[in-house]
């Protein structure tokens, strides 16, 4: 009998084994695949239910194109600033003692997840109209942060706030690459007559370039997908695409606007997917060199 029980699973058709995976696939189908299909199909559905490219064409409308543009600018600038500062911080951590590094990476793990309403309020408390820094600067140095308009609720403000979670994310994704740089490479460069400058431009720079670029792309995707922080900060107007989607979702007035929202959503997925694809390509190169 025991032998039979042992042999049985091999003999049985795979059907029973497949049964075990049904709950997972069923769940994912309903709550992930169906919503994705809703977006994709909706983006190409006309008001009468027929296939139509009108929604996607609507994306080229001036204000939507502008919103996409601003989203891209916001993501690119916050990714670049975050990548540069994060890389500097990561390098500082690599040369620091073990304890400092441990605490800092743990903190980075927390801060990279820190976004949304609480982050928006943190910055309101800091440089909002009656924020700590705004008031202090005004009282002690007579500096008016907003002499040229309240930029906190516009693109510059969003960039600043996004940087707050971009830098820690960069630290987390870039540290492993820096760890892969072996001290022998610097010493070999030196013994071959290379200066510090030559080491950075000819060895460390080219070696770290794919990792840096890949991390920057990841940061871009991160900022591009972010909604909550901007939603909590910007209550008037919809400067970026996620906020435009909010507008399309909550407005019930304009007929057909729902499907334009889906087209925008599809546009976001396409941008993020392309960026993430490039990221994984660069990641593979990094693994070969610095793994």
């Amino acid at each position: 009998m025991p032998e039979k029980a042992l042999a049985a699973p091999r003999r049985k058709p795979r059907g029973t084994a497949l049964l075990g995976a049904v709950p997972f696939f069923g769940y994912v189908a309903i709550f992930l695949i169906v919503p994705t299909l809703v977006v994709v199909i909706g983006a190409f559905a006309g008001t009468d239910g027929a296939v139509s490219s009108a929604n996607v064409e609507a994306l080229t409308n001036g204000y939507l194109l502008d919103a996409f543009g601003r989203s891209i600018v916001l993501s690119a600038v916050s990714a670049l600033v975050g990548a540069v500062l994060g890389a500097l911080l990561a390098y500082a951590l690599v040369t620091a003692s073990g304890l400092v590094r441990r605490i800092a990476t743990s903190a980075a793990g927390v801060l990279a997840q820190f976004g949304g309403v609480t982050l928006a309020f943190a910055f309101l408390a800091t440089i909002g109209l009656s924020g700590f820094v705004t008031v202090w600067l005004h009282d002690h140095l007579s500096i008016d942060l907003y002499a040229n308009g309240v930029w906190l609720f516009e693109l510059p403000g969003l960039i600043l706030v996004y940087t707050y979670f971009q830098i820690p994310l960069m630290v987390i994704v870039f540290l492993p690459a820096l760890d892969g740089v072996r001290p022998q490479w610097r010493e070999a460069t030196e013994s071959l007559g290379g200066s510090t400058w030559q080491y950075w431009t000819r060895v460390a720079g080219p070696l770290l370039a794919p990792a840096f670029l890949g991390s920057t792309l990841l940061l871009f995707a991160n900022a591009f997908s972010a909604y909550a922080t901007a939603a909590a900060l910007v209550s008037q107007g919809s400067p970026i695409i996620p906020l435009q989607i909010r507008g399309a979702l909550t407005s019930e007035v304009v007929l057909g606007q729902q499907n334009v929202g889906k087209a925008m959503a599809l546009g976001m997925v396409v941008v993020v997917a392309v960026v993430m694809g490039l990221y994984s390509l660069l990641e593979r190169r990094t693994a070969k060199w610095l793994g």
Partner: peptide
């Protein structure tokens, strides 16, 4: 997969569900 589907996009598709 959800990594490449921003939450805001998921909401759009989830509304009918």
């Amino acid at each position: 997969l959800p990594l490449t589907i921003p939450a805001i996009v998921l909401v759009v598709g989830l509304a009918p569900v």
